[in-house]
Design a protein around this nucleic acid. Structure first.
Lengths: 207, 207
DNA sequence: ATAACAGCGTGAATTAATTCACAGCAAAAT
DNA sequence: ATTTTGCTGTGAATTAATTCACGCTGTTAT
């Protein structure tokens, strides 16, 4: 189905980039070997090299990879040509945590709008992001040409929100609600299911 | 490495259980076919049947799976024999969101302790969970025999927290900090990297 | 009765993801 | 100069995960 773009590799590329951006900023590291990047990212050296093939970056056997060059190359591969924006729906505890998380940090994607139904939240800026009423969703998504959304509403509301987002033209959803969302093939849905992940960790905790 | 227990299957089992618990409670569904459970869980019918093999549950061709029976069987497979507890370290925005999320809900795992360094948070109950000072971590983890922990501290503090947790005997970590944690083989680390996931969704948004 | 379904369980096949292993190369050492 | 060393890039092999496909079984319809 998603032949041509290994889903896992995309995640790794994003992590490599962050690791390398940090190394570049904080330690002025200019060159790095595959096994070093691998260790810092929690993968194997062979996998790093494979992933470099994917983005078409070539290192040198003697110096390794040029950090700034790889960062740029991963950016070419991962990022949209223009500015990348996203919206968040559901400014509850989790929604605010995500807004706070993205505030300032992370220049790659901007959270440019948030939505909620509660009048206590709408009409003001929360953690650096203006909160609109949910009624305005279609209007804002369309006018701002937002293609990516985060859903952090209660499970019972999630499918309804997803339907509105999809009708408004959203093409990718990061879903934190603990339900499977029904969406057309063309819309990419990524689920983060905290309860399930905790159960998984607990399971492997006892081997 | 983790031969014998397909990691992805564990996640699906957890989701099946939640879907079925809800169907049982809200709609009094007594029996369900593999394709129905598959649709509600976002997987294929064949996969549901495979996963049932894993937990050793047998359905009937005419009625399908007995919902309550499967829930019990998945519980036997996934849950610890006794009570399952977990601790949370880092009661910031995200930590509070997770505490709120688990408050009341989800009987499978109890968040029984949280930890922070800020005196504004320690010494009181936050979203139903008592917040201890970080200094008491080893003591509480040991005395309460907690094997699973959630890390929701800033990236810069995460490895240090992980080291203390591991020294205290923690066997599994759900890590929300955007760094790779170095941990011994015996400790299962599961990462939730929100920035990376959002970049992935954005990537696939434009196909 | 018996024929026609519909769905489960599972061996076999397929596909996706990762790792192995080695040729080739550039710097450093002899 | 020539050897050694240590890394990259990548075809081939391996391993993990998913899907296919079909025998079997209980139920409904003829």
């Amino acid at each position: 189905m998603n032949t041509q773009t290994p889903s896992k590799a995309i995640e790794r590329l994003s992590r490599y980039r962050r690791v390398m951006q940090q190394l570049l900023m904080e330690k002025k590291v200019m060159y790095i070997f595959s096994h070093e990047l691998a260790k810092a990212s929690g993968v194997t050296a062979a996998q790093v090299r494979r992933d470099m093939m994917l983005v078409g970056y070539t290192g040198s056997p003697s110096k390794g990879y040029e950090v700034a060059g790889v960062v740029r190359c991963i950016g070419n591969y991962l990022d949209a040509p223009g500015r990348q924006t996203a919206a968040l729906v559901g400014v509850g505890n989790l929604g605010r945590a995500i807004l706070a998380y993205f505030l300032g940090r992370h220049a790659n994607i901007d959270l440019v709008a948030s939505f909620d139904t509660s009048s206590e939240k709408t009409g003001r800026v929360i953690h650096g992001c203006y909160c609109y009423d949910f009624d305005q969703l279609t209007e804002i998504i369309t006018s701002e040409k937002i293609a990516t959304a985060i859903i952090s509403v209660p499970a019972s509301a999630a499918q309804g929100v997803a339907d509105v987002l999809i009708a408004a033209g959203i093409k990718g959803i990061l879903n934190f609600a603990p339900v499977h969302l029904h969406a057309p093939e063309a819309v990419h849905v990524e689920n983060v299911d905290i309860a399930t992940l905790l159960e998984k960790v607990a399971f492997f905790s006892r081997k």
